[in-house]
Simulated assay, not measured.
Amino acid sequence: MRITALTALITFVIDQLSKWAVVQFLDLKTVGQIDVLPPYLVFHMAWNQGANFGLLSGHGDLLRWGWVALAVVISAWVMRWVRREQFSILGQISAGLLVGGALGNAIDRIIYGAVADFLNMSCCGFQNPYSFNVADITIFAGAFGLILFTGETKNRT
Rank of each mutant, 00 (worst) to 15 (best):
P39F: 08
Y40R: 03
V42W: 07
Q49I: 00
Q49Y: 14
Q49N: 14
G50V: 04
A51M: 13
A51E: 04
N52D: 11
L55P: 10
L56I: 09
L56F: 15
S57P: 02
G58L: 05
G60H: 11
L62A: 14
L63S: 11
L63K: 11
W67D: 03
W67H: 13
V68T: 11
A69Y: 07
A69K: 03
L70T: 13
A71P: 10
W77S: 13
V78I: 15
R80H: 12
R80E: 02
F87T: 01
I89R: 12
I89C: 12
G91I: 02
I93D: 11
A95C: 08
A95P: 03
G96D: 11
L98I: 04
G101V: 05
G101P: 09
A102V: 08
G104A: 04
G104T: 09
I107W: 15
I110R: 02
I111K: 02
V115R: 01
V115M: 09
A116D: 03
A116S: 11
D117R: 02
F118I: 00
N120F: 06
N120Q: 14
N120M: 04
C124N: 06
G125M: 09
F126K: 02
Y130V: 09
Y130R: 09
F132P: 02
F132G: 10
V134T: 12
A135I: 07
A135F: 05
D136H: 05
D136E: 03
D136M: 12
I139P: 02
F140K: 13
G145P: 05
L146G: 06
L148H: 09
